[in-house]
Amino acid sequence: MGFVQYAPMDTETVARVARLARLAVSPDQQKAVAGELGQILAFVEQLNSVDVTGIKPVAGVHDDALRQRDDVVNDGNCAADILQNAPQTMADFFVVPKVVE
């Protein structure tokens, strides 16, 4: 089966997706990124050529049931560990630049 070449993504979509993911992609990078993303999508879209008629979708390669745990408190109480890498803390709170809307 040949490699199907799809039209590359447009720069507008790249800018939108980058903003949603909070990634800084400058306008002069957008075209290159669009080309790369387009190639990745084209690669993945090869899957569309497989006939899956009548096959039940699965969530993963292990078709197990989700493991469940009992409702017991056996974790937490480790504020020092949690806060260890925070750039700024105050009285066991994380402190971040004001984000009120």
Binding site: Q88, M90, F94, V95, V96, P97, K98, V99, V100
Partner: peptide, 11 residues
């Protein structure tokens, strides 16, 4: 948002 004029505290 009301603990400090410039910062937000997160719990």
């Amino acid at each position: 948002h009301d603990q400090s004029p410039k910062d937000t505290y997160v719990d």
